[in-house]
Design a binder for these strands. Sequence first.
DNA 1: ATTTGCCGAATGCAGTGTATCGCAACCGTA
DNA 2: TACGGTTGCGATACACTGCATTCGGCAAAT
Lengths: 230, 230
Amino acid sequence: MTVWDRPEPPTRPVPLDRERIVTAAIELADEGGLEAVSLRKVAARLDAGPMRLYGYISTKEELFDLMVDEVHAEMLPEERPGDWREALRVRAHRTRQATLRHQWLADLLGGRPTLGPNALAVTEATLAALDGLADLDTVMRAVETVNAYCTGAIRREIANLRAERATGLSKRDWQRASGPHVTRMLATGRFPTLAKAVHDGTEVDAEESFATGLEWVLDAVAAKLTRPPG
Amino acid sequence: MTVWDRPEPPTRPVPLDRERIVTAAIELADEGGLEAVSLRKVAARLDAGPMRLYGYISTKEELFDLMVDEVHAEMLPEERPGDWREALRVRAHRTRQATLRHQWLADLLGGRPTLGPNALAVTEATLAALDGLADLDTVMRAVETVNAYCTGAIRREIANLRAERATGLSKRDWQRASGPHVTRMLATGRFPTLAKAVHDGTEVDAEESFATGLEWVLDAVAAKLTRPPG
DNA sequence: ATTTGCCGAATGCAGTGTATCGCAACCGTA
DNA sequence: TACGGTTGCGATACACTGCATTCGGCAAAT
């Protein structure tokens, strides 16, 4: 019984860690959306049985939490921003860009408290940029207001993007020419202002729309920051 | 063969319509969240087989669309508002209140274009309140910005509310005393500003927080509306 | 009275998240 | 060197999902 007769020892399972799991999950989500992420498929991509993951994760939601935090790493500004406004602006645009790269993130944005290390780092950077410019309550309100705008605006953008992709039409053409339902509804005359808006509206670039709304919100924040606390 | 010998005629299936289906689905969602809504359970609540629903709905997502639109009926203002600001404010608060009543709505807000009749009516009312106050682009930007803030803020509020409910602690106590992870993270000294904020922060009422941020955004809108178009 | 057509119900399928359990390999110890 | 304990992986199993398809039986039409 030489070595040659004996089979190779069974390959020990590839060591796993959360990093590899999250990476695999993000790949799947990038390719096929959140619904393409199943514990079985993630495990298969790592040559492991599905149950193996439960050593690193105790529920699927936790996997989503890890994924969200992982993407937050892409949002960290690489250089210290000039002023608070620049800081908030950069954070907003980086959030948007990260979500455009990982569109499934839109489904998770604002859905759960984000307490991962990367998310905390992002929050820290944001708070630091505003530190001392007003009383704490005002600062918190500012950050949360900008955050709320971002999640809402990004969600809407992705939602429209998906709708366009599904119908193969631009948003305007879609709700004007195609979408029979909308056309019929507008034709009823029950929504005159809306009908006029759809008819006269010019198609606006999504990024520009996001940026403009953001500047409005930043204007509002600026007004509250310069005013003395209270 | 008297009447008594013959069995009762088999009870014809209860007639169905979308209204009843949506109502049943909303009841389920109100009780157990979105995940408690399955086609089987909805059908069971209507004494029907699951496949019966596919005569009225061709996919589960469509059911969600119907549910969202149904709740939008609760958001319609009952009286014509005084000015545009009042209109936007009322719409925002009614959206929030409806979502607090139907918390599953937070999971859907902003997730898809809302094109149902009730949603269109809400949009129409909002646009009408702003009609003529500025050029169309500005008006659209205003509506979309306020909407974005609402969805984002409401989502965050519901997310926090669920987290508090899950841990049985208020948000502050939760991230300060309990949440071992957060505590440990803050203790690392990598997030000094955040740590200070958590330590010094006062707990703010969710509604007040929502209202304040909303007024900020409305201030920003006001600034753009009064300014001449362009 | 017979046929036709249609619609609701049952069945089936592929896939999900997760609990349970047996087995096999490792390690420290005798 | 032999052994027992522990650990952790994998297979199996379960309850459940959305949806496609098939089948049966009633209602209306001829």
